[in-house]
Computed example of a mutant assay.
Amino acid sequence: MTTADPTAVRSPAREGQDGLQRVFSRPRWFRGAGRDWADVWRYRELLSNLVRKELKVKYKDSVLGFFWTLVRPLLQLLVYSVAIGIFLGSGKQIPEFGIYLFTGLVAWTLFTDIIGGSTGSIVSNAGLVKKVYLPLELFPFSVVGASAVNFVLQLVVLLGAYVVTGTWPAPGDLFLVPLALLVLVLFATALGLILAAANVYLRDVQYLVEVGLLLWFWMTPIVYDWTKVQQNLQGAHEWLFQLYMANPMTNVVLAFQRALWPGGRTEQGAPFYYDGNLELRLAVVGAVSLVLLWFAQRVFARAQGNFAQEL
């Protein structure tokens, strides 16, 4: 043999026989995806344990525990409510401005928790990656599970806001919440898998993600209403508005606002109510996200062979 095969190692069972045993071969693009997902399903009990580990480690030795999950969105809500709602006067224009803000923030927080946590999930579990075999997709998926638990806790705060204000969302639009949530999770998980793999090879990725999410936040109608973008991009810049509306998180946030913001009821004549076909838009984004998830998993599967070496 004149060249060494980088995907082969000496087999302990054939010690002294100059035998090499292949332990990893780069998977093909269109084969093996079903086997990989089946492998993840077989390890579902381990996945649930990893989710619990994510939740416990995050608040280990913390006095307030899971309450810290609510601190960031509540602090953001307070800051934006004062700065934008009072000082800039948006609170006078948008009814139930606090709930309007929180419906967008709760969706955005879930998105950033999945993206940010998934990006560093392989690196932060380097010890397990190098020592034992398990489907490495479990680490980003455990972040998704832990983020979903935090999301449910934040919805309790939103429920409390309804009780305090005495206003409730229209039941006819509530079906948009699970649809938008599914789209968000599919899209964020796909990005998380790609970023988790990239971060193993280039640690600057985690810092680029922080900057990218900050820019993305302001390109999503959370602290302002979408009509301002439409008004400023009319005419020659109409294509920019269509590009803005193609942002998956724009559609998710608009769906959350329509479903969970009491001030968005059409019968109240709220000017910031988005009356477009959100069901169709979310279906399209969901289909694209599903394809992206398949692509992300194949990229992850092809890259994971060198994870242990890079770590």
Rank of each mutant, 00 (worst) to 15 (best):
L208F: 15
F307V: 04
L290E: 00
A270N: 15
Y273D: 14
K131L: 14
L20M: 13
P73N: 06
T220S: 08
A148Y: 09
G264T: 06
L136F: 10
V9M: 11
V23F: 11
Y100V: 01
L70I: 12
G286R: 01
S25N: 12
L110D: 00
V200G: 00
L311P: 00
W261Y: 14
G19P: 00
L278E: 00
G85Q: 03
T3N: 11
V209L: 01
R10H: 11
Y207R: 09
L182C: 14
Q154Y: 11
S121M: 03
S147H: 06
T69R: 10
G65I: 08
A161F: 15
P135H: 02
L195G: 01
L136P: 02
D36C: 09
D18Q: 11
V129Q: 05
I122V: 14
N199K: 04
V177L: 08
L174A: 03
Y244N: 03
D225F: 10
S48Y: 10
V106D: 05
A283C: 06
G212L: 04
F24L: 07
S142F: 00
T165F: 13
S11W: 05
L186N: 08
I222V: 09
V157D: 04
L311A: 08
Q297H: 10
R35W: 11
P221N: 02
R42Q: 12
F30M: 14
A146Q: 01
V51Y: 03
W239F: 13
A146N: 02
R31H: 15
L243C: 07
L280P: 02
G286L: 07
R298F: 00
L179A: 12
G89E: 05
F102I: 06
A4E: 09
R42D: 12
E267Y: 13
A33L: 15
N277V: 03
G286F: 04
A107V: 04
M245L: 15
V209S: 04
I194N: 05
I122P: 03
Y162P: 07
K56H: 14
M245W: 08
V156D: 09
L105Y: 05
A4D: 09
R31F: 11
E210Q: 15
K92D: 10
Y207C: 08
G212D: 03
G117K: 05
W29P: 02
V205W: 07
N247Y: 09
V143P: 02
L101H: 01
F139V: 04
V223Q: 03
G19E: 10
L88F: 15
A259I: 07
G34E: 06
L260N: 01
F141M: 15
Q17L: 15
T3Y: 11
E96A: 12
D5K: 07
V164H: 09
G145A: 01
L208Y: 12
D5G: 08
A170W: 10
L136D: 01
P262N: 06
R14G: 01
M249N: 02
V23G: 07
S142Q: 03
N247M: 07
A296K: 02
K228G: 07
F175K: 09
A301Y: 01
D113E: 11
D204K: 10
V209I: 07
F175W: 15
L20I: 10
W226P: 01
K92I: 06
D113R: 08
P178T: 06
F66R: 13
A146F: 04
